[in-house]
Amino acid sequence: MAVKEIFGDSIEFRYRNQYSLLSGVFINCKQGEVVALLGRNGCGKSTLLKILFGIVHPKNGFVSINNRRYKRGYMSKELCYLPQHSFLPTYKTVSQMIYFMVDKKEDRERIAADTVLDKVLSSKIADLSVGEKRYLELTLLLARQATFYLLDEPFSGVSPYLKEKIQQVIQDNCGQKGFIISDHHYNSVLDISTRILLLQNGGCRSIVNKKDLEYFYVPEGTFDD
């Protein structure tokens, strides 16, 4: 069976009356990969993920999922996107959202029995902590039949315990799925990534090892033993 792949090629984007944010970006992710997308604030990481997902349209370039081009990647049902901000309605309860977003009964039961979520099943989304919300959102998305997951700052505002749980969930699923993860908590992402990309000056730079990041992204000595 052919390995599934998503890629965006020659992606150019600029916000109105602004400098060019992305200029000819190429990014790809295959099934089984965890791609760390790093970069400074405002370099276009979130915009690039939104372009891949299909809710922001680039000036130039295209997105291909399993060798088929899409203007709106999400219509393929092969893509899921975890945005920076919580997208679940605050007035609904956790169990209502599980029922709504998860189709299979066995998946619902599995999620409801999760050690983090079983304590908050009857709580409203508004009453959850930031970490619990992120974990719930990620768990709900992973129950979808999608192959590729675009995670925008999944570790932001999350406690160390839930950070580990999120890392574990990603690793448990990365055999069948592909992940592109963007986050400023680079250590959390680097721990689980199989490949590192640095978004810089409008383009994607491939980073071979962590030490190379010291030239472009993190302070020197960060990865010294």
Binding site: F87, L88, R144
Partner: peptide, 15 residues
């Protein structure tokens, strides 16, 4: 008022 709600529908494959 619910700007982020669209992500629910997009993640379910609807525009």
């Amino acid at each position: 008022f619910y700007k982020h709600a669209k992500y629910i529908y997009c993640n379910l494959g609807f525009s």
